[in-house]
Simulated assay, not measured.
Amino acid sequence: MFQNPETAPPMMNIAHLLTQKQDLLSRLDESPGPNEREEIERLLGKIDAELNAMDRPDRL
């Protein structure tokens, strides 16, 4: 239905980001190697930054 996440409704974006975050946290529980752990943590930081940006009142 929505191909481009930037044109999807905000709740769809939030749900997508939260799903990605949950998947990454599950991968961390699997004891990844140091390189994979670093990449997962980088992606988690990016997701958290996007979620925080959506939470800013000036975006409403």
Rank of each mutant, 00 (worst) to 15 (best):
M1K: 15
F2W: 14
F2M: 07
Q3A: 10
Q3K: 11
P5Q: 01
P5D: 00
P5L: 00
P5F: 00
E6V: 05
E6N: 05
T7R: 06
T7L: 15
T7P: 04
A8G: 09
A8D: 07
A8P: 10
A8M: 06
A8F: 03
A8H: 01
A8L: 07
P9Y: 04
P9K: 04
P9S: 07
P9Q: 07
P10M: 07
M11R: 11
M11V: 12
M12R: 08
M12S: 12
N13G: 12
N13I: 08
I14A: 02
I14W: 00
A15I: 11
A15L: 13
A15C: 05
H16E: 06
H16F: 05
H16P: 00
L18P: 00
T19I: 05
T19E: 10
K21L: 06
K21V: 02
Q22E: 12
Q22Y: 10
Q22G: 03
Q22A: 09
D23T: 06
L24I: 03
L24E: 01
L24G: 06
L25S: 02
L25M: 09
L25R: 09
S26H: 09
S26Q: 04
S26I: 04
R27Y: 09
R27S: 10
R27N: 09
R27A: 11
R27M: 13
L28A: 12
L28N: 14
L28F: 14
L28H: 08
D29N: 15
D29H: 10
D29A: 15
D29Y: 11
D29K: 12
D29G: 13
E30S: 14
E30K: 08
S31A: 15
S31F: 08
S31M: 14
S31H: 13
P32G: 14
P32K: 10
G33Y: 02
G33K: 06
P34N: 09
N35K: 12
N35L: 04
N35Q: 12
N35P: 00
E36Y: 01
E36F: 04
E36D: 15
E36T: 15
R37A: 10
R37T: 10
R37P: 02
R37N: 05
R37M: 07
R37I: 02
R37D: 06
E38H: 07
E38S: 15
E38P: 00
E39D: 15
E39P: 06
E39N: 04
I40V: 08
E41G: 09
L43K: 13
L43C: 02
L43T: 11
L44W: 01
G45W: 01
G45I: 00
G45S: 12
I47L: 02
I47C: 02
D48C: 02
A49M: 09
E50I: 02
E50C: 01
L51V: 04
N52Q: 12
N52H: 10
A53Y: 09
A53Q: 11
A53P: 04
M54G: 12
M54D: 03
M54L: 14
M54V: 00
M54T: 01
M54P: 03
D55W: 06
D55A: 15
D55R: 11
R56V: 09
R56M: 11
R56Y: 05
P57I: 03
P57E: 07
P57G: 10
D58Y: 12
D58A: 07
D58R: 06
D58G: 05
R59M: 14
R59F: 13
L60H: 11
L60I: 08
L60K: 14
L60R: 12
